[in-house]
Design a protein around this nucleic acid. Structure first.
Lengths: 188, 188
DNA sequence: CTGATAAGTTCCCTTAAGGAACTCGATGCG
DNA sequence: CGCATCGAGTTCCTTAAGGGAACTTATCAG
């Protein structure tokens, strides 16, 4: 099938989906972050083909999203746990869950709820601005080129488009307000 | 290939990924929400097979995520625009983008940045608790069963697991704090 | 010794993704 | 008037990824 590789596209969504967009990958992460880490449990919970599960788990370990850990020596037993990189996928899952709850829960209501231990309430995720805390929506934000942007496969049209937006801003409007991002690990 | 259908699983992540987990679907939504709506533009920007693009767009229109709109009569020309349901996928894209920025941006930095028009700053998304505004992480939250929860394919193991957690809470700990969710549209 | 459990592998078959060419209606242009 | 062009798909062929089910290997319980 030679699926188009997306890891090299100059777009973080493309890079993230290249690994993550697989339906199984999302559900595997859901399970692992919820505490289901054994191969057989995952296979049984998801009803996934064992062959595909093997492939997904290998990929996730290669990418450093999961780690394979021996949790018992005799008999030797392994389990998969999320690394920091894996745990940071949680907002993606929360965002997906929220959307699914809102548009597909139907009459019976959502299948699960999230309990925030810190404030001891059932809650939902809000996409908040890291600066002002207000809600971020497609309407109150715009996309501008970043330092790693370029035009190429996957950004053939969108690259020039957002570049033209930047040109319409006052020249150094953003000279001194970089986005607050955590320490960035070395990319691959 | 008979891909396992995930729409019927009692899990909002499964339901959401069933539609959304396709890599192309995410990138199509990125483009449409950024203002790229024409068939040829999408095909060219993404480098996607036109056949697959047709299939994805049809699916997205069927699901009510996109709408096909005639933007010019003579000659007749159509374009795709996001519905409310589609615009609400934005947090999912932001979460994916964030994660991709953090783990795959490398030396050159992220390919794009998000400008928050309301506070006029470049920003990133934070997954915030709808109640207290604090950051939600895999570590400070727990999953509990919701009204629509059940054990079945896709939740064979995880269903009973989170149900057992609920049993360990004080009986009516959450009797009066339902999650704040917007008006829920009728499911399908 | 038999059976069960965990964690994968192997094999075959179907189907979806890629790629490239082709269609079809409506202009635009010389 | 005739030809090229553009937008928006459709068709055809090949390849490879997913599903299903059986098989393997290692370890322990009874």
């Amino acid at each position: 099938m030679t699926r188009t590789p997306l890891a090299d596209v100059a777009c973080s969504i493309a890079r993230a989906t290249d690994l993550f967009s697989d339906a199984w990958t999302a559900l595997i992460m859901r399970d692992v972050l919820t505490g289901i880490g054994r191969f057989d449990e995952l296979a049984r919970d998801l009803g996934i083909s064992r062959k595909v599960l093997t492939a997904r788990l290998s990929r996730l370990v290669e990418e450093g999203v999961l780690a394979r850990e021996r949790y018992q020596e005799r008999p030797p037993r392994e389990r998969y746990i999320a690394t920091e990189k894996g745990r940071e996928l949680y907002p993606v899952l929360l965002a997906l869950m929220n959307w699914g709850d809102r548009w597909y829960a139907g009459e019976t209501g959502p299948p699960a709820r999230i309990h925030h231990l810190t404030c001891d309430r059932d809650t939902t995720m809000v996409a908040a601005c890291a600066h002002c805390g207000e809600r971020l929506t497609a309407d109150n934000t715009t996309q501008l080129p970043g330092p790693g942007g370029r035009t190429g496969p996957g950004t053939e049209v969108i690259g020039p488009l957002i570049a033209s937006r930047a040109a319409q801003q006052t020249p150094d409007a953003n000279a001194s307000n970089n986005p607050p991002s955590g320490p960035r690990p070395p990319g691959r």
